[in-house]
Amino acid sequence: MKRYLIQRFAYALITLFIIVTATFLLMQLLPGTPYSNAEKLTESQRAILDAKYGLDKPVAIQYITYIGNLVQGDLGYSFQYQGRTVMSMIGDRIGPSALIGLQGLVFGTIIGLVLGIISALRHNTAVDYVSVTIAVLGMSIPSFVFAALLQYYIGVKLGWLPVALWENYQSTILPSLALSVTVIATVARFIRSEMLEVLGQDYVTTARAKGLNESGVIWKHVIRNALIPVVTMLGPLAVSIMTGTLVIEKIFGVPGLGEQFTLSILVLDYSVIMGITLLYSALFIFVVFFVDVLYGLLDPRIDLKGGSKA
């Protein structure tokens, strides 16, 4: 177990390091300057600015400096918002993203579970068909299309919820809802097929045979066993939420990380693009790592000694 953990952790670190390096090199290939007044910048001015930001040094030196600063938790300064550190910008922006992300995740998982379980228990009934339809729609309709439609119908036409100002708690509802759609669909589909499979297992038949009442069977054996693999979904779900925030924050005007990321891309604010890329990657890697460990703990059938041949 310990050896496995260490191994996994080492991979996570290597992956992160490779991402840092690759992102850094990609940024070097980006055309144009990150300076915000590029239109009127003269060559000599640009040289001064390059020197100030250390962009005149050889790439290797810049890279070492960046890694050195990174280890100390310094992501550099934004070019667009002069004087602001990337760290402080991420700090300002992470709250809204985390809020709508978590809300979307929690809400989506709950609804998804409910739909999936009902659907499996009422297999091949109208309820099942409805929830399967919802799941297919949710999987298929791109989240930004759904977000745009939500905004148009609920925000504009019906006027029930604020359209796009980050004002109060109501402002978080539509973006969270838009994010939760994929989650609902994924979880519902997954739990449904898991449940159906568990329902067909011998031990369920046995439990019934030994006279346990139906709800007992469902709760004690079916749902519990079907729920364990849901943990593995956390990885892909976290990814879909992160992906989702990139556009959904733009649509609903949420002052979050995704919105900042798309904005920085358009103005080539290197340091911010890198900072957010690293944050997303680290988060993603952490979730995958966490899920692996958690799954190992939850499911005794999984052997974590590593490298053992099955």
Binding site: D92, I94, P96, A98, L99, E167, N168, S171, T172
Partner: peptide
């Protein structure tokens, strides 16, 4: 999280 999300209102 709620405290960190800076609602303008």
């Amino acid at each position: 999280i709620l405290a960190g999300c800076n609602f303008s209102g």
